[in-house]
Design a protein around this nucleic acid. Structure first.
Lengths: 337, 337
DNA sequence: CTGTTAGCGCCTTCAA
DNA sequence: TTGAAGGCGCTAACAG
């Protein structure tokens, strides 16, 4: 390895203390626990901070205090639009409490989960947020043993590692199927991503319908191109398809585009329901029916639970079901289109 | 403050060393610099790691070695779709080199820039990636003084803080205007976000057209709903509009939806060009002409420059222009629609 | 190849 | 209200 750039001796609290004419620890307290220091001293220290351009070293502080003031979040991929509001709300809520987010991309590959968790843990986060459940038993065991607050999100199960903010994907699938059946549609199809949660939704859908339905499974990332392919595939399986449930609004967008390209009228010839209620769903032509999930609320709640635990409070309700609801729009409004 | 949870005395390198029957530093070297340790010792240490469940503490290591193995990235908001491929590629490239990303959301508000940078700097990142330029003079000064590698992205200027990977927004606007003019369209309009880079593109557009053009400025976030409003606004200003340039594909999507809702044929009645070449652009009906920018390449290049500098190498080409190109599709193909 | 020594910058514990 | 030690977990720098 080539020589590293010479370490720039940065301004430390020591320099601030000297500048202010107080001891190191007094300077420390003036900044992090002002209540126990006289106002005069605080003013002197703050001025010294200005003069020296001091920026605290949270790495050093965290070493002794055992609070890194960071939270690690594990997402399959940043570009999965579904989780964006959650990550955004999480970042904002944590920031308001002085915490920073460390992001880890795990893909949908369970085998990478443990390795990635270890990497993140080596940064000693004060909490961990997972999008999805922790699947690897080794990882579950490790997390429990570390006694770090953990929030699993976007799903529910009866054996949380610690805390949980999500909803039932089985019920989502079931609800969409019930909705389709209530409309009198019989020839149903599914366009779905291949991830775990989407599969569970499919399971709920099928079990409510009562029999298997034509399904097009598309690999990640779930986007418009895949949606177009998926509809082509479904129509090949059943040219008389009446309604399609899509595991994401991006897929649904592709399904709609492909349907329109084939001259199918929505919803007269084909009804479409998406999942996620993306910001564009309401503004498409026709507007897209979708399953709404409050992703931002998931992020805020996760942050809230984490912060409570970081401050030593007990959390009574450790599993929060945020629910979901079907937003009916023109793409499934019989009589329209 | 309530009592903090009792610190769980975690497994340290000390425990590993004792378990392996070697000294602390030997254990350290076996893990981080195996080249200088005998194979037998390495094996013993690795086994001790397994037995004890040791996970290194990078905070402690970083304190001494002055390398935190983190990179801070400052984005306006995670949900700005434009930057997603960049952030994703950045995360992946850094991960491959053992670095983690710390994400800071700054909004488009320049006044928050310095505060956020200070927060991030207190984590002592080994490098900083900005989406956009550093605007605040105080922040520029501070970054220079810290001598941390900094990459400004998604833009170019003649006075980089340190390194730069981007393209000219002025040229983008100019190119789109030139393209419209070459098609013979005279009644032009702009639907644009209110951020700095979008404004510069507008400037380039107007200066090539040679006179002001009807403009609808929409606040962030740039999405389909705003696009629909924007077209309504533009048509109110000029009912005979022939072509619209949009500062994002999301806006363009809204413009297209609004046009279709009004019975306008694309592109016969109205031609539309977006910016960003989002993954859905090619699959819309009609397919959307857009300005393609390789966001993932920006992320990869930024990571590459940073890693070089972190390893003490000189970087010769400190400003990289990744360019752009107009992808022509049906939404501007005269004769179609 | 291995070990000893001395901190990194800050905060906790005790004492004044 | 302030200060003096000591140590968090690890790794550079130097010895053996």
């Amino acid at each position: 390895m080539p020589p590293l750039p010479k370490p720039t001796k940065s301004v430390t609290l020591h320099d601030v203390a000297r500048e202010a004419g107080v001891s190191l620890i007094t300077a420390s307290r003036a900044l992090s626990n002002p209540g126990v220091v006289s106002d005069k001293t605080i003013a002197r220290v703050q001025q010294a901070v200005e003069v020296t351009g001091y920026i605290p070293n949270l790495l050093a502080g965290g070493l002794k205090s055992r609070r890194s003031m960071t939270v690690a979040a594990l997402v399959p991929a940043i570009s999965v639009a579904q989780f964006l509001p959650t990550v955004q709300a999480l970042t904002e809520s944590l920031d308001a409490a002085g915490y920073q987010l460390i992001l880890g991309q795990g893909g949908y590959d369970h085998s990478r989960e443990e390795a990635l968790l270890n990497t993140l843990i080596s940064r000693r986060p004060d909490g961990i947020v997972m999008t999805g459940l922790v699947h690897s038993p080794a990882a579950r065991e490790r997390l429990r043993h570390l006694r770090i607050p953990v929030v699993e999100t976007w799903d529910l199960s009866d054996r949380p590692v610690d805390m949980m903010v999500g909803f039932s994907h089985l019920k989502v699938g079931s609800a969409v199927a019930g909705y389709f059946l209530s409309k009198g549609w019989k020839r149903l199809g599914i366009a779905t991503g291949d991830d775990h949660r989407a599969s569970i939704r499919r399971e709920g859908f099928v079990s409510t319908v009562g029999h298997e339905v034509p399904t097009a499974v598309v690999p990640a990332p779930s986007n418009m191109a895949r949606g177009r392919q998926a509809l082509a595939e479904l129509l090949a399986k059943d040219p008389a398809l009446e309604a399609v449930y899509c595991s994401s609004d991006q897929l649904a967008q592709g399904v709609l585009a492909e349907a329109q390209a084939r001259g199918l009228r929505i919803p007269a010839d084909l009804a479409v329901c998406g999942f996620g209620d993306a910001d564009f769903a309401a503004h498409m032509e026709p507007a897209l029916t979708s399953v709404h999930v409050d992703g931002a609320a998931i992020g805020r709640l996760a942050a809230q639970l984490l912060m409570q635990r970081c401050q030593g409070h007990e959390v009574v309700q450790r599993v929060v079901d945020v629910g979901f609801r079907i937003i009916e729009r023109r793409s499934t409004l019989a009589g329209a289109g």
